[in-house]
Design a protein around this nucleic acid. Structure first.
Lengths: 256, 256
DNA sequence: CGGCGGTTTGATGTGACTCAAAAAGAGTGG
DNA sequence: CCACTCTTTTTGAGTCACATCAAACCGCCG
């Protein structure tokens, strides 16, 4: 499956931006057996409370992680796109504390937990890269707490759209400031902790003020500077610089 | 410094609840040189944007992590008590994306990043334990997003107090359902993303309904079942069960 | 053409915010 | 032990952002 070979390489490039992984480590990670599976729209890949044995990597499409409270309200806590490892926490957690669902048709490649652990055990630099990925994950969650807690709904919406645009750009899926985002307004509202009615008004306002354009299920950032100012967006929390070079590791040449 | 030897051991016990760390790994981690420092109340241990070289472990006292927006509003994203490693992310992140501040006099023990990395490189089980700690951190941030996003201010406050009580209990600092919590109402409000005026009214209500009692700077959970029901508190996200036993690791006997 | 998921609109309600000031503690120095 | 200050908690009144409820509209698909 040449498609997912490229996918794993892309994932490695993401968690090892400085290119310090040894080629044997890379080879070992790439050699992990993969399972590719396609899911339809709106399908639960993992349900809360489940015990999973494989970690999910998105090849194409989009998934969200969410929690449902007793009251039935839902909070989406993250979105994941191509080359994102969705549930690295499942590698060490006995029970999943949240669910994962697709938005639009989605192809997931999964790796067995024990294979990931074995490679991490043999190659400290892989362990470190996975750890880094988890640290970035945590940093994004912190930002979401700030976003939901301290920004009003316009800023909050703008902030999330900028985060998404930035993530899409990082994997080459932003074309003409536009990304495909097959998420309904009521799901997006669940991520922003507002009602879908209110989000609808905000989207109208963002369009009216020429911050964004929407067409079918794609979103275009029309005015970056004003969006960034509105949202107070500072992308540092996405840590595009990659992990610190330290310890006994040495940077090496990048592969083409 | 016998005090902090005990501290490191307690930290190891926390990130290795099943006791799978080899004694050589433990010894190597305990042997990392430590720096102990006392801070006064309300003191910034780390400021946002700083490049730190050491990771902080709380010995006694309390610290919070927070972000400040341009508007000046502040969001506290976590509290940390005895035996918590506060900024594990700084080990791999070049720049800190949030600040750390004390609440009350606090003793911090710090370990150099390169020492932590070196031990993690030599002992895969240490690397795994640190990774687990980060995963739990991320799980708590997810819960905070849910808390701030989807619970009303009464439930939200109750939920945070229960989380704190549970964390204090885990390190033996909950006596008679009471924990010391030297945090002002306006700081607590910054964690809950509400105003201090509103929090004040909620605290009065929680006291009036006999959910909690307060005395000076200590908080007593007076009615656990009702608090838990009010907050919808399910402590699973704190992952008290510890990391999954998998890979080539074998559980070993606990030390007395 | 009818049904369905999703979007949009309108009217009304309310939880939490804002502003402002009083009251109560905590700390300091005389 | 009191006078003074500074911080924190408490109270009150008015306001607003966002929620709720309900219905209409729209585009897509069978």
């Amino acid at each position: 499956m040449p498609g997912s070979v490229g996918l794993i390489e892309r994932y490695l490039a993401k968690i090892d931006r400085a290119g310090i992984l040894s080629s044997t480590a890379r080879a070992a990670f790439v050699a992990i057996p993969r399972l590719t599976r396609d899911y339809p729209n709106n399908h639960d890949v993992i349900e809360e409370g489940q015990r999973s044995t494989r970690a999910c990597l998105v090849e194409t499409g989009l998934v969200s992680r969410y929690r449902t409270l007793q009251s039935g309200v839902r909070q989406i806590v993250s979105f994941h796109i191509t080359a994102d490892m969705v549930d690295l926490q499942s590698v060490l957690f006995v029970v999943t504390d949240h669910a994962i669902r697709t938005h639009g048709p989605t192809r997931i490649v999964s790796l067995a937990h024990h294979d990931i652990l074995a490679v991490a055990e043999d190659f400290p630099d892989i362990a470190r890269a996975l750890w880094f990925d988890t640290l970035v994950d945590a940093a994004i969650f912190r930002e979401w707490t700030v976003n939901v807690g301290r920004r009003n709904s316009r800023q909050r919406t703008a902030h999330l759209l900028l985060e998404l645009a930035t993530k899409f750009a990082a994997v080459g899926l932003l074309a003409n400031d536009t990304f495909e985002f097959p998420v309904t307004q009521s799901d997006l509202a669940d991520a922003l902790a507002i009602t879908s009615v209110h989000l609808n008004r905000i989207m109208q306002w963002l369009r009216g003020e020429r911050y964004i354009r929407t067409h079918l299920r794609s979103i275009t950032i029309e005015n970056w500077p004003d969006m960034i100012a509105l949202a107070g967006f500072r992308p540092g929390y996405l840590h595009p610089e990659g992990p610190k070079l330290a310890g006994r590791q040495q940077p090496r040449e990048r592969d083409g």
